[in-house]
Design a protein around this nucleic acid. Structure first.
Lengths: 110, 110
DNA sequence: TCCATAATTCATGACATATGGAAATAAAGA
DNA sequence: TCTTTATTTCCATATGTCATGAATTATGGA
């Protein structure tokens, strides 16, 4: 992940509808969710959500797949990992003692 | 960390100068960096950087401290942890099997 | 073929954000 | 006190972003 990709990813997550949609897809896991279901869950119009999903797609944070009439969206864990790695990489590179407790805190029991 | 704080943090990191400044401060660690040194390192004007540091401050991603004439900035690891936790929390909550490899990948050897 | 459904694309107006110049504040030293 | 240095604040402008309404594409079924 380079600087531009990271900026795109952070920018994508800096908007309420998109952050909510992304979290929804993360919890949905492999099942994913159709664009319509996401729009209904978040109470936003289809075209508004469509534009926001397009931003998440371009940021590499979600994937999609047409299934007949519906288009199903999934969280892209690789994209998420790349973005987080971009931040933590620097932390570890320079100061392992800062990184250690941060990582430990993120394991959140699973 | 709530939704609004997370949005503020992601928004703060979605701008090149701010993301660069934050990474600079992360690697600087406890030593921190003065506003002037950051401005010079990133080749941006002081007033522009000042505005951007104010955004990072408000997002809780950096702290500062006056030392005589200079104002020294530090990365706020608590803020960083809160932001990352906000994303990973959902991942773990719903799907531990998604979270596990993601966490493992983030430990990056330290 | 015709219609209904699902979702996207396009154009527009409203609002927010970033940057630069100039001025202001704060501290240190002569 | 006056000057210099470090940094911030104010203001204007240019740019970017977001949601909306209308039109468009794509699919499935009558």
């Amino acid at each position: 992940m380079d600087m531009i990709s990271a900026l795109t990813a952070f920018s994508a997550l800096s908007q309420k509808t998109r952050l909510e949609a992304f979290r929804l897809l993360v919890t949905a896991g492999d099942a994913g969710m159709s664009a319509g279901d996401i729009a209904e869950a978040l109470d936003v119009r289809q075209n508004t959500l469509s534009a926001n999903l397009a931003v998440l797609l371009q940021a590499g944070l979600v994937r999609n797949q047409r299934e007949g009439r519906v288009i199903r969206y999934f969280a892209d864990t690789d994209g998420m990992r790349g973005m987080l790695g971009f931040l933590l990489q620097d932390c570890c590179g320079g100061r392992p003692e800062l990184c250690q407790p941060l990582i430990e805190d993120l394991t959140c029991g699973c």
